[in-house]
Design a protein around this nucleic acid. Structure first.
Lengths: 153, 153
DNA sequence: CCAAGACGGTTGCGGGCGCAACTAGTTGTG
DNA sequence: CACAACTAGTTGCGCCCGCAACCGTCTTGG
């Protein structure tokens, strides 16, 4: 009853979800990276650090690494570059002298307050192409996959 | 009537869709890369070339680049490595002597026929965590975004 | 038919990043 | 207290990849 001459199973990359997800995430990133790079001179690791520190003042490098899922060396370098541009400042923690608390500087806060509305607006413009109900269905899928892969937080 | 003391708009990275999409795509890739790398010794560019050539025999490097959205140099190097492992073969095209038609070798076909079922199975296992209806809703969102960003094909 | 430009594919170069080793500081145990 | 094990963060090394220059091959137009 089953086919004898195995008809050579094939895989169309354009229909393969992992590939499509990669391509989609990449496209979305490109869509946003323009702002970060051209307008503020930030690359993605730097942007992620800015975003994290902007909403979690005084956090540590390891906190940033955990919540952005970037390798600690990448975080360390991004922090170094941002500090060199005086966008963030580091203060030794009194508690544990190994860790350094990261804060936005005055100009860092200024950039952050300019950057965030643009990013949110760009995100909204992207998601607007789905209606509200499609968006909801999409996000349910994203959340379920995140939980399955244990990516949340 | 508008707020006077702007309450400093913030952005939570964990709720920012572009970031979450990147993280998700990355998680999914990791989930699959194990197979490619540990079992077949392929990295992602190589896997994409194998997949493309396996379903489009005799295609050219530029076709691979266009359909995988990889830079042509990345494609060129991946092809070179696969050829060195005798998984693919290149034949000069009679039509245009600049381009070279890429085929799977005998051992390439063997690997392909082993690789594809595993990849599809792994994809299915991943998507199974969404039910059929959640999956449908999720894919509608993915397709809509792809069209919006002009990523299809 | 020849020059100029376009195009397929390759490669040197430099930048970014993961890995692993390292420093400095902390915690736990006898 | 001493010593081992652990943790926060930094950095040298090597790999991967995008960029741009390049080579050989078409193609077009004068």
């Amino acid at each position: 009853m089953t086919a004898r001459s195995t008809p050579e199973q094939t895989l169309e990359l354009a229909a393969f979800v992992p590939f499509r997800l990669n391509r989609l995430a990449d496209g979305v990133s490109q869509h946003l990276a323009v702002i970060y790079r051209k307008r503020f001179g930030l690359d993605i690791p730097q942007w992620r650090v800015m975003a994290t520190v902007g909403s979690k003042h005084g956090c540590t490098a390891q906190y940033i690494a955990a919540s952005t899922r970037m390798h600690k060396s990448r975080v360390s370098r991004a922090i170094g570059e941002l500090e060199a541009r005086a966008l963030i400042e580091r203060a030794s923690s009194g508690e544990d002298r190994r860790q350094r608390q990261v804060h936005l500087s005055r100009s860092g806060r200024r950039m952050y307050s300019e950057l965030v509305p643009l990013a949110l607006e760009r995100e909204a413009a992207l998601l607007a192409c789905l209606g509200p109900e499609r968006l909801a269905g999409f996000m349910v899928g994203v959340e379920t996959l995140e939980r399955f892969l244990e990516l949340e937080d």
